[in-house]
Simulated assay, not measured.
Amino acid sequence: MPSNPLRRYQHGGDCWALVTGATNGMGEEYALQLAQLGFNLIIHGRNASKLDSVAARIKAKNPIADVRSLVIDASTSTHDLSELKKLLAEVRLTVLINNIGVVTQDYPLLEEQNAALIASQLSVNTLFPTVVAATALPVLKRNEPSLMINMSSLGAFAPAPYLAPYSGAKAYMLGFSRALYNEMHCENRNVDVVCMVPGQVVSGMNEGPPTTMMPMAEAWVKAALASLAPGFFSKRPAPVIVPHGVHSWAARAMSIMTRGMNDSATCSVTVKLRNKKLDSTASKTVDSSNDEA
Results as ranks from 00 to 15, higher is better:
residue 10 Q to M: 04
residue 10 Q to A: 00
residue 10 Q to W: 02
residue 12 G to S: 06
residue 14 D to Q: 12
residue 15 C to E: 08
residue 17 A to S: 09
residue 18 L to E: 07
residue 20 T to G: 04
residue 20 T to K: 10
residue 21 G to T: 07
residue 22 A to V: 09
residue 23 T to Q: 06
residue 25 G to R: 00
residue 27 G to H: 01
residue 29 E to L: 11
residue 30 Y to F: 12
residue 30 Y to P: 02
residue 32 L to N: 02
residue 33 Q to A: 05
residue 35 A to V: 08
residue 35 A to I: 08
residue 36 Q to H: 15
residue 37 L to M: 11
residue 37 L to W: 06
residue 37 L to G: 03
residue 39 F to T: 08
residue 39 F to H: 06
residue 40 N to L: 13
residue 40 N to I: 12
residue 41 L to D: 02
residue 42 I to T: 09
residue 42 I to H: 05
residue 45 G to D: 07
residue 46 R to T: 04
residue 48 A to G: 10
residue 48 A to R: 13
residue 49 S to W: 15
residue 49 S to T: 15
residue 50 K to P: 06
residue 52 D to Y: 08
residue 52 D to Q: 14
residue 52 D to H: 12
residue 52 D to K: 14
residue 53 S to I: 11
residue 53 S to H: 13
residue 54 V to K: 02
residue 55 A to E: 11
residue 56 A to L: 13
residue 56 A to E: 15
residue 58 I to V: 11
residue 58 I to S: 07
residue 59 K to F: 02
residue 60 A to I: 12
residue 60 A to Q: 15
residue 61 K to G: 14
residue 64 I to D: 14
residue 64 I to R: 15
residue 68 R to T: 09
residue 68 R to C: 03
residue 69 S to H: 10
residue 69 S to G: 11
residue 71 V to C: 01
residue 72 I to T: 09
residue 73 D to N: 12
residue 76 T to Y: 06
residue 79 H to R: 12
residue 79 H to S: 09
residue 79 H to Y: 01
residue 79 H to W: 06
residue 80 D to P: 05
residue 81 L to I: 07
residue 81 L to M: 08
residue 82 S to L: 10
residue 84 L to A: 03
residue 86 K to N: 15
residue 87 L to K: 10
residue 87 L to H: 12
residue 88 L to W: 07
residue 88 L to G: 08
residue 93 L to S: 03
residue 93 L to P: 01
residue 94 T to L: 03
residue 95 V to F: 00
residue 97 I to E: 00
residue 97 I to Q: 02
residue 97 I to H: 01
residue 97 I to N: 01
residue 97 I to S: 00
residue 97 I to G: 00
residue 98 N to S: 11
residue 101 G to Y: 02
residue 102 V to P: 06
residue 105 Q to N: 13
residue 105 Q to C: 13
residue 106 D to E: 10
residue 107 Y to L: 03
residue 107 Y to S: 05
residue 108 P to T: 02
residue 108 P to C: 04
residue 108 P to E: 02
residue 108 P to M: 07
residue 109 L to Q: 12
residue 110 L to N: 08
residue 111 E to H: 15
residue 111 E to N: 14
residue 112 E to H: 14
residue 112 E to Y: 14
residue 112 E to G: 14
residue 112 E to D: 15
residue 113 Q to K: 13
residue 114 N to P: 04
residue 115 A to Q: 14
residue 115 A to F: 13
residue 115 A to N: 13
residue 117 L to V: 12
residue 118 I to T: 11
residue 118 I to Q: 05
residue 118 I to M: 06
residue 118 I to E: 02
residue 119 A to N: 11
residue 119 A to L: 08
residue 121 Q to F: 10
residue 121 Q to C: 09
residue 121 Q to V: 13
residue 122 L to N: 15
residue 123 S to A: 09
residue 123 S to L: 05
residue 124 V to Q: 00
residue 124 V to P: 01
residue 128 F to G: 09
residue 128 F to R: 12
residue 128 F to Q: 10
residue 129 P to M: 02
residue 130 T to Y: 01
residue 131 V to K: 10
residue 132 V to S: 07
residue 133 A to M: 12
residue 134 A to V: 06
residue 135 T to E: 06
residue 135 T to R: 01
residue 135 T to Q: 03
residue 136 A to H: 00
residue 137 L to S: 03
residue 138 P to V: 06
residue 139 V to E: 15
residue 140 L to E: 09
residue 143 N to Q: 03
residue 143 N to H: 06
